[in-house]
Design a protein around this nucleic acid. Structure first.
Length: 561
RNA sequence: CGGGGCGUGGCGCAGCCUGGUAGCGCGCCUGCUUUGGGAGCAGGAAGUCCCCGGUUCGAAUCCGGGCGCCCCGACCA
């Protein structure tokens, strides 16, 4: 019997000073987790119970698609990472042993799993699907928001090994199905989005994003529910501007001390969407390029970098002055001798832009007529855009990435030499996929999505306990005895139940019960026990009910069924 | 890496400007009284004031350097 009086559940009356995200605050206050250093957390017993529940759900669904659980070490010889070419990634923790040999604290396990895949000899042994739950280390630039971005965390990572693309495709979509079931079972609101392949290398990727205010990704969602994408990859139709009257040629107007789009729009009484924003940048080859997006849009850095063939930076004021003979707030595309990359949204219509003369703007600037740009999609999707499928309104919400799936192809098998012999005896590289889930993020996202002030409302599937029995006046023997009986019966009925048998005041017990967040609560106290009754409450619905102490276990079991 | 904030019993904070032997609330321990949403009284334990150096008769307080943590930005499996 789990008695709160004997468990290490250090709840706090106050919010910790260093926590802002709700999940961080509540995990610390509720005695689930403690911070050991920046981005380093211990799961205390209560938190580990939740973590293990998430892990078990993942395990069941992975096994259901035929994956085999194993365990690879956290440390890896640097050599493996040098072979794959990932040794130089800045996020990699590197270390040496006493002999001076170099090691890596694995941030994922592609290298190590591919190392094992080298023992595969024949097409007859394929496909294979391996996974483990293992600690990952990442030297993050900036850990933040409690468990949402940490430097060390447990990940379920699985790796598929197939003969060819077709096999990979099958393994990939098996994972997608398993992932949907996992996150549904964990009670999360989530979206499966096309993702960026990033540092992992590879071709196709989906990421699973759970909307929550503390998230660090942004997700574009269609109100009709038929489109969801990371803004990094989102496609959308911009809203239509209200254009002013058409002009036969650009007209210069004086705009003293007017720099920002908001100021321009207000000063000229025009729709901000009918303005163009000039963003001079310096590309990877050192040349100055003018990016041009609509006034209400934002330049998409990844898209722009793709166009320019590498990282770029905003031009310095001196560079701007030299190229435009004007300063930052007064720039435009007309008459400049630079490569001009204009967003697709500027193709049709006449826009207000800077005049390349401080204090002046141009009305009625028209692409094709007044300047000759390259049209490329270089903007971010924003709130109010329209869905490319149905035209429905898109909103942009913050979200946290809780899992992802990647088609790696031969990104790792080739450099590491994981090959098999096909039917004709020919050597082929194994075709791989990798698939990750962070149980800690799942747990944190569940809180982010299901909390209420000082309460955690756990989805039933991952709550640390299903039922908490609160024994008020625990010193009273009959009360405690009744509570223990109820706990005993609930356990026999197969429900994990926590007994609060501490000698504490009722207020404290209720407050802690709110933090522990068991879906069902039974309060045993003098007031009702005189009538042989106890109070039941369900956290999610707020439903309250008074039943006899004898009936309580079966009634609760019925409600939980 | 840039900007901002913070570091004082377990937790939350005051004290610092204007140097003088460390304080409040909560928690903790003991006793009594209490007990349906964080009790009352009495007694008690507990602090290298982040670290190092300097100034000074004297430093939590002033000066220099360092470290740590949080937030924003940059960056990002």
């Amino acid at each position: 019997m789990h008695r709160l009086s004997q468990l290490h559940v250090p709840t706090l009356r106050n919010d910790p000073a260093d926590a802002e995200a709700p999940s961080h605050r509540l995990l610390v206050r509720g005695g689930y987790a403690r911070q050991v250093g920046a981005g380093l957390f211990s799961f205390l017993p209560l938190g580990w119970r939740v973590h293990q529940k998430v892990v078990q759900i993942i395990r069941e669904e992975m096994n259901a698609i035929g994956a085999q659980e194993m365990l690879a070490p956290v440390l890896a010889p640097a050599e493996l990472w040098q072979q794959s070419g990932r040794y130089e990634i800045p996020e990699v923790f590197r270390l040496k042993d006493r002999h001076g040999r170099d090691f890596v604290l694995s941030m994922t396990h592609e290298e190590t799993m591919t190392f094992h895949a080298r023992e595969i000899r024949s097409y007859r042994e394929l496909p294979q699907l391996w996974y483990h739950f293992q600690v990952k280390g990442r030297d993050e630039v900036r850990p933040r928001a409690g468990l949402l971005r940490v430097r060390e965390f447990v990940m379920k990572d699985s790796y598929s090994f197939d003969r060819d693309e077709e096999g990979l495709d099958a393994s990939y979509w098996k994972h997608a199905g398993a992932y949907r079931r996992i996150f549904e079972r964990c009670g999360l609101r989530f979206y499966e989005c096309e993702g960026d392949v990033g540092l992992m290398g590879g071709k196709v990727a989906h990421e699973y994003l759970a909307p929550c205010p503390a998230g660090e990704n942004e997700i574009a969602l269609c109100e009709k529910g038929d489109y969801a994408a990371n803004v990094e990859a989102a496609r959308s139709v911009p809203s239509a501007p209200n254009f002013p009257e058409r002009l036969d040629a650009p007209r210069e107007v004086e705009t003293p001390e007017i720099r920002t789009i908001e100021e321009v729009a207000e000063f000229l009484s025009i729709d901000p969407r009918a303005t163009a924003k000039a963003m001079p940048v310096v590309g990877p080859d050192g040349t100055l390029v003018l990016g041009l997006v609509r006034g209400d849009h934002r330049l998409h850095e990844l898209k722009m970098a793709a166009v320019l063939g590498g990282d770029f930076r905003p031009a310095h004021p001196e560079e701007i002055q030299e190229a435009f003979a004007a300063s930052g707030g007064s720039l435009g595309p007309v008459g400049v001798q630079l490569r001009v990359i204009a967003d697709e949204a500027l193709r049709e219509g006449q826009f207000v832009s800077g005049a390349n003369r401080d204090g002046f703007h141009l009305l009625g600037v028209e692409a094709g007529r007044d300047y000759q740009p390259e049209f490329i999609d270089i903007r971010e999707a924003i709130d109010g855009d329209a869905c490319i499928h149905c035209g429905g309104r898109l909103t942009v919400e913050p979200a946290i990435e809780i899992g992802n799936i990647f088609k790696l192809g031969t990104r790792y098998s080739e450099p590491l030499g994981a090959v098999y012999l096909d039917e004709s005896g020919k050597e082929q590289s194994i075709v791989m996929g990798s698939y990750g889930i962070g149980p800690g993020r799942v747990l944190a996202a569940a809180i982010e999505q299901n909390h209420d002030g000082n309460k955690i409302v756990w989805p039933r599937s991952i709550a640390p306990y299903e039922v908490e029995v609160v024994a008020l006046q625990a010193a009273g023997e009959s009360i405690l005895a009744t509570a223990e009986e109820i706990v005993q019966k609930l356990s026999e009925l197969g429900h994990e139940t926590l007994l609060d048998d501490r000698e504490a005041r009722p207020g404290e017990k209720f407050a802690d019960a709110d933090l522990i967040g068991a879906p069902a609560r039974i309060t045993v106290g003098k007031k009702t026990l005189e009538d042989g009754a106890v109070d039941l409450s369900l956290l999610a619905s707020g439903e309250q009910r008074r039943v006899t102490a004898d009936d309580a276990p079966t009634v609760v079991a019925g409600l939980l069924a």
